[in-house]
């Protein structure tokens, strides 16, 4: 098991696609994107039930063991979240390398 940072980001669905491109550029080792997630927060209820996904958020999950890359990712995520709302959590995790 290897120690790493686990980054979870909930963001507006269209911005998640932008973020996915950004992550590749920043050299993130990989990511998982869960579309159509819902919940509630500053911007009220997000039900993810409309045709065009107007109230859908996406969840992006990243495991990264390089602190520089983690910092780069967080630096890129902050301006996105400050425009659109959302949440970004960073925690210590153990990575089962296989």
């Amino acid at each position: 098991m290897k120690t790493c940072k686990r980054i979870e980001i909930v963001v507006e669905a269209p911005l998640a696609l932008k973020l996915a491109d950004l992550l590749r550029e920043l050299g993130a080792p990989g990511f998982t994107l869960i579309p159509d997630v819902r919940g509630a927060g500053d911007r009220g209820q997000r039900r993810a039930d409309e045709l065009s996904g107007d109230s859908s958020n996406s969840l992006i999950l990243i495991a990264c063991d390089d602190q520089e890359t983690v910092d780069a990712i967080l630096g890129a995520v902050r301006p996105l979240l400050s425009r659109s709302g959302g949440i970004c959590l960073v925690s210590d995790a153990l990575w089962l390398r296989h």
Binding site: E12, A13, P14, L15, R43, G44, Q45, E50, L51, S52, G53, D54, S55, L80, R83, S84, G85
Partner: peptide
């Protein structure tokens, strides 16, 4: 509109709260 405009606004103008204009 609640299909084309919100889709474009969320991309171009994420500061706007869909809770206002979409509602």
């Amino acid at each position: 509109s609640y299909i084309a405009v919100p889709a474009a606004m969320r991309l171009a103008l994420p500061e706007a709260n869909p809770g206002t204009y979409l509602t």
